[in-house]
Structures are given as C-alpha cells and as structure tokens.
Nucleic acid binder design. Structure first.
Lengths: 366, 366
DNA sequence: CTGAAAGCGCTAACAA
DNA sequence: TTGTTAGCGCTTTCAG
C-alpha cells in the first residue's frame, strides 16, 4: 500500500515470476520450470503455479528472458516500405505463421533508416530478434556475410542470394514470365514490349529471360528496342511506355511489365497517348498485388503467391531458429496467370510481323 | 582463437560493454556513461572509448538496457492489417518520426492475433515497448482502461476514444465530408448518396454528419434512402451502390463513399450497371490512399494527411514517454479536397431537384 | 521433483 | 571525473 500517492512518474513494475512464486508457495525457479513446460514438475505444483499465474495476471518479461540467452520470440522483418500491398501481403503471411508459433514481428522499413541498417542488423543479431526475414530488393552483401558468419537465422523473400548460400523463398519467375508472354502471343500479339525490373535483382533477370525464351519458342525474334530497363516503379513504367509508344515504329501492341506497379504506370501512359486498354494495346503485369483488381480495367497479371511466400519463409526461418545447423533451403512457389481485363486480341496484326513460316500470300476477305 | 572449430550451435555472444571497457582501459560504467552521452567524461576518455566501440563493432544490447528499467526504445503499433495503403502510409509517418529519435517499431496486426491481443498489450506494457500506437478501428475499452490505469503511454490514430481521455490524432472528418458534399453540389448534383463507414467508429459518424450538414446548408433535404450503412470495405461499397442504383428512383447522380476502399467498390458497381464515371455518375471518396490515383478514372477524394498523422502521433507518444505526466492531447489535422477525375458536372439536372432560390426561368444560350 | 544461486548486459546510485 | 556495486526478471546448472 505505498504506491498510491505519487502522481507522476509512478514506475509500476509488472507482476514477476517472484510474485507468482510467493503466491503459489514454491521457489521462483519452479515457476520458471512450469512456465517453460519442463516435464518433471509434480502435477499439483504445476496447477498451483498456473492458478497463481492466472490470478495475478502474470505476463512474462520478454527482455529478461532473451537477455538470459533464451529466445526473444521476436522475428525481424526488413522491408523497403509499406506503400503498396506487396510487402503488406507478404507480411500477412509471415505474421500468420509467426502468430501460430507464438512469435512476434518486428518491422524495419529501410526507407527511413538509410545507413542505419547496419546498426539494426547488428542489434537484431545481438539478441533483439531470433531471426531475420529480408524482403529488401537489394540485400547488401555485407549483411548477408555477417549474418552467415554468425550463423544467424535468416531467410530471403523474393530475392535470390547471389552466392546461392542462403535460405530463399521465391516464385517461378522465369516460368511466370514465359507463360505471360505465350499468353500474349496466343492473343495474336507479336510486337510485345517488355519493361524490366531492376536488373541487379535476380528475379528481374529471370523474368526477362522467361520473356525472351517464350518469344524464341514462338519464333518471334527478340528485338532489343522493345525491351526497356525499368526499376519496378510506377513512374518508370510510365516513362518506359511513353518512350516505347513514341519512338518504336511500328509500336508494340502489347506491353509486359515486370511488376504490377510498373504496369500501372504503363496503363497511364497508354491512356495518355489515346490508346484504349485492351482494345488498342494489351498490358500485363506481374505480382498480383491487391490493387491489381482495383484498377480499371482490371489488370491481367502473373500472380505470385505473396502471402504463401511469407508463410513459407517464416516457417523456414522458424525451423532454422529451432536448429541452427539446419541447412539453407531454397523453396520455389508456383506463379499463376490471372486473366482479367487488360489484355485482348491483337487487332492490328500486321503482316510484316509474321514470322517466316507464316509468310504466305494474304488471303482475300470474301 | 578458440571458437573456430565447433561447427554447429556455436553461440557467439556479441561484443559487450565489458569488452569495450577492457579495450579502452576504463571501467565498464564509464563506457556506459560515454554511450549514454553523459556530460562529465574527460574528452580523451570519451575518445578512447568511442574508438574502441568503433573498432570492436560494439552494438548495444537492447534487452539488457530495457530490463534495467530504462527504455526499450521500441514503440508498438497495433493495426488491423496491412492490406491496403492506409496503414502502410500511416506507418511510414510513424516510422520516420521514430527513426529520427532512435526508436524502433514493433508491429502487431490484430487480424492474426484475435483474442491474443490482451496478451500482447500485456507484454507491451510489461516493458517490451515504451509506448503503444493504436490504429485499431475498434479499440476495445478494456485495453484503454488498462493502459490508462497503468499510465502507460499510448495514442490513438484516426479513432476517437469514446471517453475523451486519450491522446488522439485525427483529421477534420466533419469538415472534409462537408466540403466534399458542397463540391458535389457545386457540380450541380443534388441527389447525392452517402455510403457510411462503420458507424460504431466516431470518424464515420463525423463524416456522415458533415455530409448532412452540407446538404442542409445547400437547402437539399436529407433523404434517408440515399444513405446506406457500410463498413469501410470495398465489397460493401459495391453492394451499397448496387442497391442505390437499383432501388432508388430517380437514382443518385453522385455517390459519396466514406472511404476510398468503398469508393472503389462503388466504381465497380457503377460500371457494372453500365454507367460511365464521371459522365453518368460522380463518385468521391475519403482518405486518399495511394491507390486512389491508380484507379481509373483517378479518384476524387478527401485527403487525410495519413503520413502526417502518423508522424504527429509518434511525436505525441514520444512526448508522453519522456514525461509520463504529459496530459493527453487531441490533435486534429486538416483534410483537403483532392480533385481528380471521378467527379463531373451533373448532366441530368432535373428541375424538381433545384432548390427554391434557383427556380428562375432558364436563360437561353445566345 | 524442487530449491539455491550464478549470472545474461546494462544503468544508476554511491563512493572515491 | 571515474570506479564499484547492486540489481532488472529470468533460465539454468548444481545440489539436494
């Protein structure tokens, strides 16, 4: 009864393991055992302790637990930002998996930390979190090296480690791009432009390769002027499309953007140029972020199972946390073509675009 | 040279304050002083310590620091989800402010914790975080009470505390809705429908009231059949609009949705009914989430300064963390009408809709 | 099966 | 100006 009357700064400490011990008349070590599920505790003792825990509303102090060398039951997530649904969707998967295992998520968005990232990675490895998930599009090798050196659990999401030595969850980027391109071709398109992602990123390269392979398999020559390097941003998609529409002649009838965001930019540019989608030009994206079905027309895109990727990554990470010698795995999840409204048949198929074997005398319309 | 050859489970502990002390030949208390910016340390000592810190790559152990009763320098954020840009944008503001003050963000998304929230709030108050930010649309009173009881720093974002006793950051909901409605009226609309938000939420009620007040000030009677209760979801916006279009006669020429998400739903429904936006029907939203300018046509909406709200909330929270007796504040940030492409003049102005003072003989065009 | 006790890394009196 | 020291709450041997 002595903490009632000091209005400011009252430093109310929570209920500790000691309070519980007193209340249940055992040593606090025993309480700790009960709490951590130690097997050899007499049933009655356990019950007595649990009852006290309930009654007192005891909540474990995570700092103390982790300080002692145990787990903090916190997983760090380093992501570039939360602006578009991309990270949010992955985070939901992660979050769901973690919650089921009694872990918490600590979020770091690198956009605001520039340069302090090293500090964070340090703090995280220092016990703040038990593991680290990275969505960072460009993971500085320095972190990876340090992480690996310390044998600290981590996993990369949608981003291959250049040294092929990390746990990675990704999607079938090559395959997805291949299918999207074939789809466009089935629709009659042969002048299919491609806006790349950041080519420093592995997935971006894979997507481009899938695109090229599909073209080749369709007997369409790969024309470099139809490939524009982008960086996964909407603005860049916009600019790339403007350029494509203005300076390539004849202009493409379809545009494959390496991600939805740049596809949105492409849509804007196309419309600004007076083109209707999909009547005059087809546009396809990649990712299937939530807003892909908000835009008009709804975007046809290659779906990456983002939530699933988050879930799987979390699962992998947890496995590594449990067993630090768990070898790194690479899991590749399937993509899926989601056909919506932004692609249509090529209406201005021109003969000079036809490939060799198609060159035959034009057939007169009756 | 003794930790090279035990491949698995090597439990490498980080560099501690003690290592630094040894390296710089001072007591570790002095190192602590230097690190916490204590004033009275001899310049040369400070330099020596800092140099060792650098050289050894020392990183503070946050758990230990917070355990000791100090700050954890972590702020918790409880949000419903990350699916749409709403929370993401607010989070960016928070994040920016925190980073500038050397705080970290710990994220809890309630969608996956259902029912464990109480546990989290407990853990957070128990020292895991120094303060809590809530974007939860429906904040259970139990938390608020507990938080307040313990005098634990917290702030609500875009959600008024029913008991008017918390720190709150919100926007001028009433005002924003009022202006949006007036704008629609200036465009010639008089049959303006309104899709509400979750009416259990204060901001939703404020917006509705702003709408009604504007109508009244424009001498337009409030017609209950034009007001449909929604819940801030896209799907509901869609359904409400369908209903509005089918069962109200004559149908509204403009729809004011209480948030952008439901406005997107409304756009879908309108289009499905064969209406062009904005030629046949005007649609206006509220929030200005990032995708508002992705959709087509770009959504005219009332901008809430989400990022700013996050920043201000974080600032308020930090102030409370510094001084626990800091009284709760309520800060209201201005909204702003963002005119884009989804609203246009009413083309089917009917005379029976004109208000009294407008009844005058139509003027002939020259 | 349970208790005693030694810290985990750090901060904050209190001494010197 | 700097050192010494007592814990913060908890896990984990080591002894009963």
């Amino acid at each position: 009864m002595n903490n009632e009357s000091n209005p400011p700064q009252k430093k109310k400490r929570g209920v500790t393991i000691i309070d519980v011990a007193r209340a249940s008349d055992v040593s606090y070590a025993t309480v700790s055992r009960v709490l951590s599920g130690y097997e050899f505790v007499r049933e009655s003792t356990r019950n007595r302790v649990m009852e006290a825990v309930e009654r007192l509303g005891y909540v474990a102090n995570l700092q103390a637990r982790s300080l002692k060398g145990g787990r903090s039951r916190i997983v760090g997530l380093l992501a570039p930002n939360l602006d578009n649904g991309y990270v949010g969707t992955i985070a939901r998967g992660i979050d769901g998996e973690l919650a089921g295992n009694n872990y918490d998520l600590m979020l770091y968005t690198s956009h605001s930390h520039r340069g302090k990232e090293a500090f964070y990675v340090g703090a995280i490895m220092n016990g703040l979190a038990d593991g680290l998930l990275l969505i960072a599009p460009l993971v500085p090798m320095t972190y990876l090296n340090e992480l690996r050196e310390q044998n600290f659990p981590y996993a990369l999401i949608d981003q291959a480690d250049p040294t092929e030595n990390s746990s990675v969850v990704e999607a079938t980027n090559w395959q997805g791009a291949y299918e999207a391109t074939r789809y466009l071709n089935q629709l009659g398109h042969t002048r299919i432009a491609f806006i790349t992602g950041l080519l420093a990123v592995r997935s971006a390269v894979d997507r481009m390769q899938g695109y090229k392979a599909a073209l080749t398999d369709c007997n369409i020559p790969v024309r470099e002027e139809l490939i524009i390097e982008g960086n996964y941003q909407q603005q860049t998609g916009y600019e790339a499309t403007k350029k494509l529409l203005q300076s390539v002649n004849p202009p493409p009838t379809a545009i494959f953007a390496s991600n939805d965001l740049s596809a949105f930019g492409a849509m804007d540019a196309a419309r600004e140029s007076g083109l209707r989608i999909p009547e005059d030009i087809s546009i396809i994206g990649f990712d299937d972020v939530p807003q892909a079905s908000f835009v008009y027309p709804k975007l046809t895109t290659v779906r990456q199972p983002l939530e699933e990727m988050g879930r799987v990554a979390a699962k992998m990470l947890l496995a590594q946390i449990e067993d630090r010698s768990h070898p790194p795995q690479r899991i590749t999840l399937p993509t899926e073509l989601v056909i919506r409204d932004s692609c249509g048949p090529n209406r201005r198929r021109e003969h000079e675009d036809l490939v060799e074997k198609d060159r035959r005398p034009p057939i007169e319309n009756p």
